[in-house]
């Protein structure tokens, strides 16, 4: 479904070149749940944005269903079936949650329909449908709406950047089902043990390089310092 070949991303800071991503290659197969994890600043968001077309790699190739999409715009990738949930959800002035759902699903939804997307991410839909998608919404609410938009867009490859951030850990447990039960491919940036455990594959990024790639069992030791264990602690 998705293949990255030798992707590099360099920026220039104070006249010096800085390599943010260094020779990244990996594959995501159809209907897989792949988790991208690694310490803060390791390049996870940068990599996700490169896949969506929000950033352009300095070198390397991105293939989607065998087609080279490296030079395609965000819009073109979106139309091919890629979706993206931002780590920091974007807010608007005057656009309502329902407007965004309509845009994502390319149709004027009935209220019942639109509410369905919100209910599936654990929001009491009626309260939100008419609200402006602005910064008056709480961080966790914004993150859930971000996921609801992914559902509404109904893309084939869904990239979610730290969907757990700001969402209370008890309800995140229920959200995890979305990534597994949906008949879609997910590439999720996460530090959540629960999610990593059920992943088809885990990619551990460190300082812009892939440090390890494999199943949770394969990477268990390397990951032990990485993952967020709070869920289990919280439940005790």
């Amino acid at each position: 479904m998705l293949e990255l070949q030798n992707v590099c991303y360099e920026i220039v800071v104070n006249n010096k070149k800085k390599k943010i991503l260094d020779d990244i290659s990996f594959k995501v197969d159809d209907k897989q749940l792949v988790v991208l994890t690694g310490p803060n600043g390791s390049g996870k968001s940068t990599l996700s944005k490169i896949i969506m077309g929000i950033l352009v790699p300095s070198s390397g190739k991105i293939l989607y269903n065998g087609k080279d999409i490296t030079r395609l715009s965000i819009t073109e990738r979106a139309k091919l079936g890629l979706s993206f949930a931002f780590q920091q959800p974007v807010t608007f002035k005057g656009l309502k949650v329902k407007d965004l759902i309509d845009i994502a699903s390319k149709k004027k939804n009935s209220v019942i329909n639109a509410c369905d997307y919100l209910s599936r991410v654990g929001l009491c839909a009626r309260e939100y449908i008419d609200r402006d998608l602005d910064s008056k919404l709480s961080g966790g609410e914004l993150k859930r709406i971000e996921l609801a938009l992914i559902l509404a867009k109904n893309g084939e490859l869904n990239i979610c950047d730290e969907p757990e951030a700001g969402i209370d850990l008890w309800s995140f447990d229920a959200l995890i089902k979305l990534f597994k039960e949906e008949d879609k491919t997910f590439l999720v940036v996460s530090h959540q043990r629960r999610l990593i455990e059920i992943a088809s594959k885990v990619i551990l990024l460190s300082r812009g390089k892939i440090e390890a790639e494999g199943s949770y069992e394969d990477l268990k030791e390397k990951l032990s310092s990485q993952i967020c264990d709070r869920l289990e602690e919280g439940n005790e």
């Binding site: 969506m52 929000i54 715009s73 965000i74 819009t75 979106a78 139309k79 890629l82 979706s83 993206f84 931002f86 974007v90 608007f92 965004l100 845009i103 994502a104 390319k106 938009l149 867009k153």
Partner: peptide
């Protein structure tokens, strides 16, 4: 905001 445009582009708008 650049981010606002990018967000809507990820939803399929040009």
């Amino acid at each position: 905001g650049e981010g606002q445009i990018e967000k809507l582009m990820t939803l399929g708008l040009d």
